[in-house]
Design a protein around this nucleic acid. Structure first.
Lengths: 239, 239
DNA sequence: TCTGTAATTTGCGAAATCGCAAAGTACTTT
DNA sequence: AAAGTACTTTGCGATTTCGCAAATTACAGA
């Protein structure tokens, strides 16, 4: 984290959180008193990251853990050959960079902003303090880990059993569930997403993604454009 | 768990643990006093599971968590089409069935014995008690979760970027690392393992596994037989 | 408006992998 | 010893998917 893009918590973050009552529900702070919430927030910094920049990189010392307030980010790994693989996406209200929950002292993947993002961050040293002081925090970290394991498990099963077309469909449907916004034409995935991005989520090539999406476009199942995916008839995507 | 194959901890388990000093190092009990270890052990049951039987099934109420003492087990998921997918293997010294660490009240995968196994089990209710009383326990659970996430992440990257031949090689090498025993011919994977099993680990067919392993056999890289895999020259397996 | 860049589409041949079928082999049970 | 079962091997055609190339389109910046 470079010093110039991280600040002690200010009105900005508090207003961001108050702005969205629904978001506040998702925070690990839900079962806390006003005082406790203020204690936790007082130790947080706000971090704003432009699209395609990283919150941290694989191998970095795990100095902080984060809570995403706005934007979407990808957790990615890069192979020795330089191929990117998207492990999962993080949406607002979710914690990330929680190396402490894995007894790690470095991050084991890179967190890259898919769209401009805002996150709260805490120094990893307060992790154990929060666990000890706030029972809801332990529970929140467990849930975060559990969701993550669940999602990775699903992904392994999909990659092991489905063909490319179905894997692409599943990946799109997952993003629809996680970030979908209603529009007149259908449900739109709420951040810029290229064919290449989708191929990195599904272990295929951008060409194959394009071929299948063109077919779905013809069939009126999706309505996608440059860096944009709208799903009109989710139920008609293949299994 | 059926009542007839689970017993309060007896000399059997204690002797099993004392028998193998190395194993004792791996236990989450390492930093405990004799008294504390006895407290923990006194609440455990011993469970013996024959090869191909399950410790628990996906969807079961998560009544217990486990520590594997002997044998190897597979964590598997079954698709709607009945295809088995092996998520990972558990070897002696590792905890499993730790739904509590994910804030789940049911198991989200099936644990099936690859070879006859012995495990300690505790009722899930004591999880939080152990966490509170024994700091080393929290650390051990974090490490267990961290290793698991790490392994799943690796698997996702492999499935996304490698061809079938390389995926098979990686799967075999991982088992060699986890369970390999030195023999005169090379390193043997220490439990019965069929071509079908390997295909369920790598998202391919038993036929493809057989074809590649036959090739490696011809090249003297492996020496495998019925339900048996010995790797002679691990460094010559493809990437 | 023009120009350059990034993203997408599409065609076509090559390669990888599967699916089916059949035969061979090792182990178990009777 | 014989029979049965589970596991493995192998061949071959069908299918999926890739890789490369080229053309097209959308958007951003000058």
């Amino acid at each position: 984290m470079s010093p110039e893009d991280s600040f002690p918590i200010q009105n900005e973050a508090i207003s961001l959180m108050q702005k969205d009552a629904e978001l506040a529900q998702l925070l690990p702070f839900e079962e806390l008193s006003q005082d406790q919430a203020e204690d936790i927030l007082s130790q947080a910094s706000v971090r704003r990251v432009p699209a395609n920049a990283t919150y941290f990189n694989e191998g970095d010392s795990a100095k902080n853990f984060y809570l995403l307030l706005d934007g979407v980010l990808r957790v990615v790994q890069v192979t020795e050959q330089g191929e990117q693989v998207v492990i999962l996406h993080v949406v607002p209200g979710k914690m990330f960079g929680i190396a402490k929950a894995f007894e790690n002292d470095t991050y084991h993947a890179t967190a890259r902003a898919a769209s401009e993002g805002v996150a709260l961050s805490w120094p990893s040293e307060v992790w154990d303090e929060f666990i000890a002081k706030y029972p809801g925090f332990l529970q929140a970290t467990r849930s975060a880990v559990g969701e993550r394991v669940e999602e990775m498990q699903e992904k392994i099963v999909e990659m092991a059993t489905l063909q490319v077309e179905q894997r692409i469909a599943h990946a799109i449907l997952r993003l629809v569930r996680q970030t979908g916004k209603e529009t007149e034409q259908g449900i739109e995935i709420d951040f810029p997403l290229t064919r290449q991005d989708i191929s990195e989520m599904t272990g295929t090539t951008l060409h194959s993604v394009s071929r299948y999406m063109s077919k779905w476009q013809k069939d009126g199942i999706v309505n996608s454009g440059r860096r944009r995916v709208v799903v009109c008839r989710p139920q008609d995507l293949p299994v």
